[in-house]
Amino acid sequence: MKRRSTFLMIVLGFGFAFFYIPILSMIVYSFNASRLATVWGGFSTKWYVSLLSNDKVIDALFLSLKIAVISATVATILGTMAGIALARFTKFRGRVLFSGLVTAPLIMPEVITGISSLIFFILMADWVGWPGARGFSTITLAHITFSMVFVTTIVQARMIQSDRAIEEAAMDLGSRPWQVMFDITLPVISPAIMSGWLLAFTISLDDVVITSFTTGPGSTTLPLLIWSKVKLGVTPDINALATLMVLTVGAGVVAAGIIMTRAERRRLADERMAFRNND
């Protein structure tokens, strides 16, 4: 038993090295003074300076953030509704199609989602004159559509675990259905909704393929900007940009993880306290 464990620990060590060496190497080379991205030429922060004074990068970042905030918010609202619907309303006409529509975007290759959205927008413009120009609005609509199903998956899983008795009690005490949802259901599943929003936000912020098909002239998001530069090869300023993004997202995720674990622990402690007081 002991020897096998040593083997497992070695594989684990190599596995994490495999995960993190490329990222660490990229971070180290972002401080490379040399213009050649892969040859070390001394320490420098000049790529960060040139990056932060590059208006194109800043504009792209703000466009990406704007799209990500709006699409994550709408996707969370729609995705939560779909998750609640699937977990609570077990019988309604078209449920099979609905649950299919909620799963399909998860496995649909992004190229296909991207192309079908683009064809849809082009034909709609032809038939009904909308959307006039592709860009911010078409990207946002496409992002909402494919990120809402991730929210649905998370919310649905949480809903199935949660106790229906509280909702039924509120109903018996005379709450109207929408009051039950706002006063009971949503607060109970709020950690899942928050994770869903965060996931939708990062999916939108990160997306290249679907964005590249649904964008129009003048709407360059940050991933699209990186994509067009990276296709030509490795450059030191992208290393710097990558470092900033990886560190920001990493710090954000770790912080969110810690906050959520604490909140969950507090909620469990409160629940236990409430039950003990009842005894």
Binding site: M26, D206, V208, V234, V249
Partner: peptide, 11 residues
């Protein structure tokens, strides 16, 4: 959670 594109780029 970190950018997919950048993980490819790192390689």
């Amino acid at each position: 959670w970190t950018s997919f594109l950048l993980r490819v780029y790192a390689w």
